[in-house]
Amino acid sequence: MKTTLRCIYCPTGCTLDVEIKDGRIIVKGDRCTKGCEYARQEVIDPKRIFFTVMRVEGEEYKVAAVRSVAPLPKTEIKKLNEKFAKKHLNKNTKVGDKIANIHGVDIIVTRI
C-alpha cells in the first residue's frame, strides 16, 4: 500500500511518501527523523497532542489551558475534550501541575 502524507511536526510541512510492504513501513521525503516517526505513527495509529481549556473554581471569565505532554490517539481527542470541559480546576493549581493521566500520558496546566 502506498500513500502520501504531509508532515505536521514542523512548519516545513514535508511531503512524505509512505509505502507498506511485507509488513515494513518505508518512508521517503522526510528531511528529519521526526518526519519518519510521524509517518510511521500516522499509518499505524494517528496521534495528536491534546489541548483544551478548563474552568477554574470561582472564576467566571477566565479559563485555564491544559495539554498532554505526549500525543494521544486522534480518535479520542474530542471525547477527551468533552470530559475535561465538565471538570473544574482547583484555584490553587499552578502552571506545570499534573492534573490527570490518560493512557500513561500526563495532562499538565500550561496557563492559569
Binding site: Y9, C10, F51, T52, A65, R111
Partner: peptide, 11 residues
C-alpha cells in the same frame, strides 16, 4: 497566552 495549541518553539 491565547494560542493554547502546540507547535511553537521547535526552532
Amino acid at each position: 497566552p491565547q494560542c493554547i495549541h502546540n507547535g511553537f518553539g521547535l526552532q
